[in-house]
Design a protein around this nucleic acid. Sequence first.
RNA 1: GCCCCUCUAGCUCAAUGGUUAGAGCACCGGACUUUUAAUCCGUUGGUUCUGGGUUCGAGCCCCAGGGGGGGCACCA
Length: 556
Amino acid sequence: MGSHAIESTREQRYQCQIPYRRHDSTRYRHGTVNDHATGNDGQPDSTLPHSGEPDEQYTGSGLIVEKAKRLAKIDATRAAGTEPYPYRFDRSHTLAEIRDEHAALAPGTELSDRVDVAGRVMLLRDSGKLIFATLRDRGGDIQLFVSKAVIGDAGFGAVQNLDLGDWVGVSGTVMTTRKGELSVKVDNLQLLSKAIRPLPDKWHGLTDTDTRFRQRYADLIVNAEARRTFEIRHAIIASFRRTLHETGFIEVETPVLHVEAGGAHARPFVTHHNALDMQMFLRIALELHLKRLIVAGMERVFEIGRVFRNEGISTRHNPEFTMMELYQAFADHTEMIDITERLITAAALDSTGTSVVTIFGPQEHTETVDLALPWRRARMIDLVHDAIGQDVHPSQSVEHLRGVASAHGVSCAPRWGPGKIIEELFEATVEHTLIAPTFVTGHPVEISPLARTDRYDPFLTERFELFIGGREYANGYSELNDPVEQRVRFQDEQTAKDAGDDEATGVDEDYLRALEYGMPPTGGLGIGMDRVAMLIAGVHSIKEVILFPTLRHEVL
RNA sequence: GCCCCUCUAGCUCAAUGGUUAGAGCACCGGACUUUUAAUCCGUUGGUUCUGGGUUCGAGCCCCAGGGGGGGCACCA
């Protein structure tokens, strides 16, 4: 069924390529996104050939025509005996290496150092017998200085035929221009890959958010801000790994396909395994498998992995996102608080060189926060007390707490107990005020089915959540390791599930069996990596830190 | 699911309800051996997201639908 659907989509794409099919039905095979918008523009066929001289046989512009012109250049290149898509190119330097080695050359310098570099042509400046090009590789840009007298007539013609977006490999010497621009004086140029589709505006880049997210490849080519954001994201993840390895954690991989979607409150994606004829769920958390490994004796484990929640999409939510979870034997929640602070502060320093981040509040309001300053710790019930001037505690009656809640505009579902009502009060009255990093601790037992009861207060747990700028970033606790109590908590969840709470989890019998072998005292932590990336990169939307965010299916 | 905004050339953007929807970049042709978004000259390029409607006349107003964005709800 699936492959049939793909085939028919391809067929529809090809039918958008009428000008090409008519002249060359075998070579062109690239389905395109926006072609339907231009489609067959009704021009006579003679304007759209795909062979011979590109200059005379057709005129006009628009995407279809421009691609035809570039395809004609490919044919001409092949006809001249050159492969427009060669297999490899051996470069001697990256562009950053050339910049590092020749950081302070005086204007007008000509070195004899030979270099072979490769990249994409981003700009072209043709001044007759001299052409300047801006070449870009992953690490930066450098100017190509192409003189007709140096490269020869044939080579110069090939450079004149280049289009923005083409990949080239060049050989030459290092020089600076009269104005001091570091350049490669090209004596040989080889096309490495011909671009058929024109780049977005060379100055403005791409601004249309739809196109930026759907065609991230184009976004990254032309928008330096997008490249910077993802460099930061990946530096953050690398920083986390380094900190954790230095602290004695080992990285593991656990199943994405779960029989029981536990470890969080969320609606899962449901799927089916054919050979086993079994319903399965995409994981909503990493927690329960990692704690099985603590039972196994691995002591310190972490996983950075994708989790999936079948819920709404917003500036802070993507259906698939990246969690880091870690578990440490013999530790409790206080050590998890410490490592949370270390991980995030180090990640900011490692990825941006500063621990100062900008918080975007409502109505364009921004303020800065220095993550290097000590982070506040406060109990949830104390914060609510400070906000409403009234004591709240999960030992109080549901009726009393419902009254308090409604007095503060919080409406309660019938099945909510005291703990859930207190959490809702917290979210309504406190959460948005927590701008500087704050560890909120002591969550009620009712809303923390996997956390250990507070050693001094049986109604609370040894749990914390980290809030910065009113948003949640991390969640951790002293892990519940008593299999008898865990079964009771699971049964409460099952009761809620049976009562219609489709985010509640059921009883995970295998997890209980693992606990029965004995789990040492353990601290656990989960951090939402996408949100940390948003915080440190200073962007407003989670789509800015996910390379390919979830979008509605594009109708072609 | 609800509300608001938005959609014009490959890209970035214009266009009181009133000629044949314009400009820059890109593309094509021409000039130029030190440019830096090169510059200069000349071309070309449009299903104004789709479908209806109002009107003598719709890119613009109305209705329905679609994509995207923002907000609300949901979301440990």
